[in-house]
Design a protein around this nucleic acid. Structure first.
Lengths: 122, 122
DNA sequence: GCCCTTAATAGTAATGATTACTAATAACAG
DNA sequence: CTGTTATTAGTAATCATTACTATTAAGGGC
């Protein structure tokens, strides 16, 4: 777990953006600072940051997007254009968030299941 | 929007399973009934059923899984083995669901954003 | 500051889920 | 039954992501 300039650059890019960037977009931004950085490195570092819970992965039809953990928030995702909008406020259930119409919502609980907990005991 | 035996078979498979099947798994099951069905058809039909809100897509690292809408429920996803467990009960926030340890949860609101609503008015 | 070990990277090839394409097929309206 | 055309089977192509490997560079010890 060495500190490399690639790692800190990529973490900075995600932490300083509110655009839910893809790996490719992060790669393009990173090249301004490190012209020789490779796309494979971006993917590998992003996976590590997600594993370490430094950033979050948002799975989308056009590939994964990555989000910082600066402020606790959820997401509004447009069914049509797939835009991701941060939802900072507490949940108001009038089927609207701002002027965006809510059609559905999904809650996923992430954790360690019974079977995997047992395996960790060994 | 014609009714084909491929469409009704695939919808039946998803509606009668509690295993959150992938397209490939649905394809293998469908071949028992229609040996010549093609994988492309399974993907196309599944996309249509999701668009028509007859079934739900669950995005996972190993590809999309598909879920029926028989009973309203959320999902518990194991970080280790990526198992998907249905959560039928109301949310109990003791960081456990059954014997599964909750590490995190994510809420996504799906809908039509302000911009797309404006476009629909035209 | 200088080695040395080895984790991490750059560059490229491979993978695999999903989509695109096209000729053939089959709903279903008249 | 017939004609139209949406849908399908089969296959090729796409593209996000991962795997592989020789090379580079953290960073601990001296």
């Amino acid at each position: 777990m060495r500190n490399t300039k690639q790692k800190s650059l990529i973490l900075n890019i995600v932490n300083n953006s509110y655009d839910h960037l893809t790996a490719e977009e992060i790669y393009e931004i990173a090249r301004h600072t490190l012209p020789n950085i490779s796309l494979g490195t971006v993917y590998r570092v992003l996976n590590g940051l997600v594993d370490d819970k430094k950033i979050k992965r948002i799975k989308m039809s056009d590939g994964d997007h990555f989000d910082n953990l600066n402020e606790l928030h959820n997401h509004f995702i447009c069914e049509k254009c797939h835009k991701i909008i941060d939802v900072m406020d507490s949940i108001k259930f009038d089927y609207k968030i701002g002027n965006n119409k809510i059609v559905d919502y999904e809650i996923n609980f992430i954790g360690i299941c019974e079977d995997c907990l047992k395996k960790e005991e060994n």
